[in-house]
Amino acid sequence: MSSAVADLMRRNLLDVFNEPDPERRNAAIALTYAPDVVWHEPDRVIRGREALVQRAAELLAEFPGWVFQPDGPVSALDDLGHLGYRFGPAGQPPVLTGMDIARCKDGVIVELYTFVNGSSQPS
């Protein structure tokens, strides 16, 4: 299952949260998450695919031109996946770093936890 979990973690980061086209993003969401997915962000909990669709669009609108990049390889253990990320303006050093941890079942993410580490730039 670890290669399937790794694929889901990469799709979560790159095909959903980096995808500016709503139709392609929504198709990726349908393939990546359970209908009743629960996503824990630092300041809120999102429940269900429709709410995730809306929140992904909000993030893209809030940070136009910013991109997520994997920060290292995916780690997978049984039905759990972990992927660090960097986030910032395309072509520039990242502004934020963090990690996603997901619980997967039946080929989709059923629960996602997003942690934000804060600035990756030296002070």
Rank of each mutant, 00 (worst) to 15 (best):
S2C: 12
S2V: 05
S2L: 00
S3W: 01
S3L: 07
A4C: 02
V5Q: 02
A6N: 11
D7Y: 00
M9E: 11
M9Q: 10
L14S: 05
L14I: 05
L14V: 05
F17G: 03
N18E: 14
N18I: 04
E23L: 10
E23N: 01
R24D: 04
R24Y: 12
R25I: 04
R25E: 09
R25K: 02
A27P: 06
A27M: 05
A28G: 05
A28F: 00
I29W: 00
I29A: 03
L31G: 15
L31S: 14
Y33D: 03
Y33H: 10
Y33W: 01
A34I: 02
P35R: 12
W39R: 11
H40Q: 12
E41F: 01
P42Y: 06
D43H: 06
D43F: 05
R44M: 14
V45S: 14
V45Q: 12
V45D: 12
I46A: 09
R47S: 12
G48S: 03
G48I: 05
G48Q: 08
A51K: 08
V53A: 09
Q54I: 11
Q54M: 06
A56T: 10
A57S: 12
L59W: 04
L60I: 14
F63T: 07
G65A: 02
W66S: 10
V67R: 15
V67G: 06
F68Y: 12
G72R: 06
S75Y: 07
A76P: 05
A76I: 08
L77R: 10
L77Y: 04
L80D: 06
G81F: 05
L83T: 08
L83H: 06
G84P: 07
R86Q: 15
R86K: 12
G88K: 03
P89H: 00
A90P: 06
G91V: 00
Q92M: 09
Q92S: 10
P94W: 00
V95P: 01
V95R: 15
L96C: 00
T97H: 03
G98P: 02
I101E: 05
A102G: 09
A102I: 02
R103D: 13
C104K: 08
C104E: 09
D106R: 11
G107F: 05
V108S: 03
I109K: 05
V110N: 09
L112M: 13
Y113V: 05
Y113A: 02
Y113C: 08
